[in-house]
Amino acid sequence: MNISIVIPCYNEEENIAKLKTELLPVLMNLSQGDEVETIFVDDGSTDATWPLLHQTFGDLNLPGVHFVFLQHEVNRGLGAALRTGFAAVSGDLIVTTDSDGTYRFSTIPALLACLTPGVDLVTASPYHPQGGVAGVPRYRLVLSQGASFLYRVLVNWKVHTYTCLFRAYRRKVIDTVSFQSNGFLAGTELMVKAMLKGYRVAEFPAVLYARQYGTSKAKLIRTILAHLRFQWRVFLHRLRLVALA
């Protein structure tokens, strides 16, 4: 199968060298049996991210590996960057990942291996009993752990992590499930809507590492409010289903 890897980037110039070192061996491994395209979406960076992506990856000639470079003229948010990337994919299987390597790129093959028959979406899960967190400040975990707990109550208790970007999708999920958020809610919105639509989700127990370079772009208060509003809509949807039963 063809594989597409979508990597949103925003002011990540400090991470580009690390990205190349850690990602290229994975792409070369995957390309042994599949065609692999990597789609970088620069979401209106104001630093040197855009030229550095081209300088680092643009002239590489790797059999079975292709690079696509897309750019927003202004910063539009993670969700908008994902939609831009999804509109350009050609693969049957689609991976989304952070550019900072907080989930190890080396685990992409294992993530994809969890897309067994009957599984439509695989999400990395640091909050799974077999997952873990390494070096991430406690205050940064409050949002994702708290939000994931509420989604477990509202959607599916067996799924432990709802907030990460590191995932693998079958193409049909991307083609049939829409999401409106332009911000960091987008990945959660996509997964929750896919689950409510009947798509089966599997978890890949993973370790979430602290970023080594740069700073997180998530705005905590804004993201918390977005999750609460979306959770309220999910709750109302569940109530309507109960009323109709």
Score class of each variant (00 low, 15 high):
Ser4Glu: 11
Ile5Leu: 13
Tyr10Ile: 01
Ile16Tyr: 02
Ala17Arg: 01
Leu19Trp: 02
Lys20Trp: 05
Lys20Ser: 07
Thr21Ile: 13
Pro25His: 10
Val36Ile: 05
Val36Lys: 07
Asp42Asn: 12
Asp42Leu: 02
Asp42Trp: 07
Thr46Lys: 14
Asp47Gln: 07
Ala48Asn: 09
Ala48Cys: 08
Pro51Lys: 08
Leu53His: 04
Leu53Val: 01
Phe57Leu: 04
Asn61Gly: 11
Leu62Gln: 10
Phe69Val: 06
Gln71Met: 14
Gln71Phe: 15
Gly77Ser: 08
Gly77Cys: 07
Phe86His: 01
Ala87Leu: 13
Thr97Met: 00
Asp100Met: 04
Tyr103Ile: 06
Pro109Val: 00
Leu111Ala: 10
Cys114Trp: 10
Cys114Val: 12
Leu115Gly: 05
Thr116Arg: 13
Pro117Leu: 12
Leu121Lys: 05
Pro126Ile: 01
Pro129Thr: 01
Val133Cys: 00
Gly135Tyr: 05
Arg138Cys: 12
Arg140Asp: 00
Arg140Thr: 01
Val142Glu: 09
Val142Gln: 05
Ser144Phe: 06
Gly146Asp: 03
Gly146Lys: 00
Leu150Lys: 04
Tyr151Gln: 03
Val155Cys: 00
Trp157Gln: 11
Val159Arg: 09
His160Asn: 14
Leu165Arg: 06
Phe166Gly: 04
Tyr169Phe: 15
Val173Leu: 13
Val177Asp: 03
Ser178His: 14
Ser181His: 12
Phe184Trp: 15
Leu185Pro: 11
Gly187Lys: 10
Gly187Met: 11
Leu190Ser: 07
Leu190Cys: 09
Val192Trp: 12
Lys193Ala: 08
Leu196Phe: 09
Tyr199Glu: 07
Ala210Gln: 02
Ala218Glu: 15
Leu220Ala: 02
Ile221Pro: 09
Leu225Ile: 03
Ala226Ile: 03
Trp232Gln: 05
Val234Lys: 05
Leu239Phe: 10
Val242Tyr: 12
